[in-house]
Amino acid sequence: MQEAMIKRAKELLAEGTVNRVMGWQAGEFAYDITPTVFSSADELDKAFVYNDFCSANVSKYMIKESRKEGKILCFLKPCDSYSFNQLLAEHRIWRDNVYIIGIPSYGKVDVNKVRAKGVTGITGIHTDGPNVVVETIYGSETMVKMDVMEDRCLCCKSKKHMVYDELLGEEGEVLQSNRFEQVEALENMTPEERYEFWRSELSKCIRCNACRNVCPACTCENCVFDNPASGVANKAPSSDFEENMFHIIRAFHVAGRCTDCGECSRVCPQNIPLHLLNRKFIKDINELYGTYQAGEDKDARGPLTNFTVDDCEPSIVHHRRG
């Protein structure tokens, strides 16, 4: 796939369709993949990678990149295409300045799960049927891919691209995902248990803002948490609970717009399952207003910014648990 992508990117650069390419390159370590903009065939040859560690969602970069001179090529995995489409719905990306190639994704590998198997000195990775082969400075290790796949990929919602100009590889289908099971587990807790669960998780937060910075729904020109006029920016918390509120406020801010891409949990250095907050909102929206997937249709009116006469009455919420 990596070769095919580089080949096609070079063609598009050569024919002048695009003048830049949004892709990935290795960071300090081979598993430490970073989104990068390439502007020449040379750069692509030198650094462009696409492998099982390339899980970063690059759609958010298109907000700034699409406003620059000329067209940019962007490779989107199915789940990234939902985020991209949602940003289109919010008029955040200038579609005319982006050339999208949809690429398939068969699940990305969580390096922490690989490390947990005692593998160190990782220099590369490639898929081999149902297995992945991890190359290390000590030789290569083969393991079952399912065992080391990211949690969010294990409950993948769709292998189908929502928006693209062309596709590389085969197109998939929208899947029957069991992703709400984790939310149900939380709903089945008593309020006290749930409170304890979130307190213990959220108290790990170091407020590095990685979740907000990576989130494709958090794209405000001026985030309320950075805006002194909002009254909440850089405010000294009056209790440790107030600190936890950051994540709850963020979940409210992205409610109805979150596509459940799972980037927030992926980048969290403290491994807080932040996606569960957003996923709870998605589940509630589905149950109260009918199934809705943000990013599926860029012209759809999200249920939270729409009104229909058969909308549920607010009192219904009181009758529901959780």
């Binding site: 919010e90 020109e221 001026n222 805006n227 910014t305 729409n306």
Partner: peptide, 13 residues
């Protein structure tokens, strides 16, 4: 205008 994202959420509601 300095803070507006142009997302149309307000227009819709």
């Amino acid at each position: 205008e300095l803070m507006c994202n142009g997302c149309s959420a307000c227009e819709k509601v």
